[in-house]
Amino acid sequence: MASLITCPHCGVRPKEEFTIRGDASLMRPAPMASEEAWHDYVYVRANPRGRSFEHWQHAAGCRRFLVVERDTLTHEVHSVTDGAVLATRSGR
């Protein structure tokens, strides 16, 4: 994990200010989706080696939910986007 994360609102901050909130690549299934779809959404995680998208909350700063794209192998942070901005852009 990188030591520093660049928050789009607050600038470069140490990672201790952030709290991980889980995988950001998952899409919530429809309410009446099958039990398998809900089981996969709630319990099954890929644990990728390489690039991953995660929700990180800037708990000791702006308190926004951010989507951090980082590499679990090289510790490099590729992008940090506000979750709401990303959702609007991708039409979620």
């Binding site: 990188a2 030591s3 510790h75």
Partner: peptide
């Protein structure tokens, strides 16, 4: 009286 003990990612 200060011991530097670790070098972490991003030059911290």
């Amino acid at each position: 009286r200060t011991t530097v003990f670790g070098w972490y990612d991003d030059n911290v």
